[in-house]
């Protein structure tokens, strides 16, 4: 059941993120990238196999049984990925504001479509 929920969550986030990424407004693109990065972060955790009630660190006195432990590596990876995507999103927001100020529009091409 857990697997289905996680898979659905990743799927919905990816689909919404991709749709937003292809929209013409910079704000939509930023939100789309954020949603996509949430999906990717969930995906990385899932790739370390989903485990409930398993710690990623060896506790004193409980012995070293790999079967009772969650894989710590994807958790470390996802931490790095979160930090990096957070930093990149804030950097993108700055550029977005600069673009809005300089071009006078929030279209990703810096000019409106001739519609």
């Amino acid at each position: 059941m857990n697997e289905v929920i996680v898979a659905l969550a990743i799927g919905v986030l990816t689909a919404s993120g991709t749709w937003l990424l292809l929209r013409p407004r910079t704000y939509q693109v930023v939100i789309g990238l954020s949603l996509l990065s949430y999906a990717v972060n969930l995906f990385i955790v899932a790739m370390g196999r989903l485990r409930v009630n398993a710690a990623p660190i060896v506790e004193a006195g409980r012995g070293v049984d790999p079967a009772a432990l969650a894989d710590p590596l994807p958790q470390a990876l996802v931490l790095t990925a979160i930090v990096i995507s957070f930093a990149m999103t804030s950097l993108l927001l700055v550029v977005l504001l600069a673009a809005r100020g300089l071009t006078g529009t929030d279209h990703v091409d810096g000019q409106e479509d001739d519609a």
Binding site: L33, L36, V40, I44, L91, V95, L96, L102, T103, V108
Partner: peptide
């Protein structure tokens, strides 16, 4: 700024593919 906006967005999307 206009050129960089495209450059940043494309590379961020590519980075997500890299992670996957």
């Amino acid at each position: 700024v206009r050129a960089s906006l495209h450059y940043i967005i494309i590379n961020l999307a590519a980075s997500l593919l890299f992670l996957i």
